[in-house]
């Protein structure tokens, strides 16, 4: 039997990028405990619309933890208190009746608020555009197993590729650093044979683009705790190593410049 919860919400409302925002209090009553966090916001929005009020704008899309669109600060934690869970997969049964929940958008100088809880995360795209691709020959499909990849390597690459680009790492970081995101995108390709051709150029370009938007890592480790995919901090070390190599190698000879 599902139970219902009565909650007090403190939600950041902001009309537009240049408007001044503030916290507004809302009463959310009779929320079923099997609703997801986003469904709870839907219920609140329905009642706002019924009362001719402007609904709360919040980021969402797949609602199954794979697209990386959702993400808000819930009681001071990115994606809420559940480890390894995106906001859309956080369920109301994790809260208690009578709780007060504070909801704030991601904050970083490079993530300006668009409206209410929605921020512009396009700097993450800029980083991917700088080198998050491989050059693949087109033509007929390659034979299966033509390129042997050890299982450990494939798994390590997949662990990095699990990043959904939600920006929780930046949001959780006291320095607003983008290291966890960038290093995951790098290791995804840098660890595979297909990624070798552009490896050092990619590392250099993506790190330097990252530094145009975000802060610098001081190894707090908040990003990993916030990450819905529990991306490992070890990728940051790999990025630092590859970045140094990218500067040290004579890449003119290697054809990467």
């Amino acid at each position: 039997m599902s139970q219902t919860l009565n909650l007090t919400l403190k939600i950041w409302r902001q009309e537009g990028p240049n408007a001044k925002g503030s916290f507004e209090s809302y009463q959310a009553n009779n929320i079923p405990d099997d609703a997801s966090f986003l469904e709870m916001l839907d219920i609140v929005n329905e009642s706002l619309i019924e009362n001719n009020q402007v609904p709360i704008e919040f980021p969402h899309d797949c609602r199954e933890g794979i697209c990386g669109t959702c993400g808000v600060m819930i009681n001071g934690r990115a994606h809420g208190q559940e480890i390894g869970t995106a906001t859309c997969q956080l369920h109301m049964r994790k809260f208690n009746d009578g709780d007060t929940i504070v909801i704030e958008p991601w904050r970083a100088a490079a993530f300006p608020v668009v409206k209410d809880l929605v921020v512009d995360r396009s700097p993450l795209d800029k980083i991917v555009e700088a080198g998050g691709y491989i050059t693949a020959p087109t033509g007929s499909a390659p034979d299966a197993n033509e390129m042997p990849i050890p299982k450990d390597v494939a798994e390590s690459s997949m662990d990095a590729a699990a990043c959904i680009g939600c920006g929780a790492c930046v949001a959780a970081c006291p320095n607003s650093a983008g290291q966890l995101f960038t290093s995951a995108k790098l290791w995804h390709l840098n660890s595979l044979p297909q990624g070798q051709a552009e490896r050092y150029k990619r590392t250099e370009e993506m790190v330097e683009t990252m530094e145009q938007y975000f802060g610098s890592c001081t190894n707090h480790g908040e990003c990993k705790e916030a990450c819905p995919k529990e991306i490992s901090l070890d990728f940051i070390a790999e990025m630092n190593k590859d970045y140094m190599k990218s500067k040290v190698k004579n890449r003119k000879k290697a054809g990467q410049k």
Binding site: K10, F23, E104, R107, A108, A109, P174, N175, S176, Y213
Partner: peptide, 8 residues
């Protein structure tokens, strides 16, 4: 310079 403070 990269940071934007949380209000909560």
């Amino acid at each position: 310079n990269s940071n934007d403070r949380y209000e909560s």
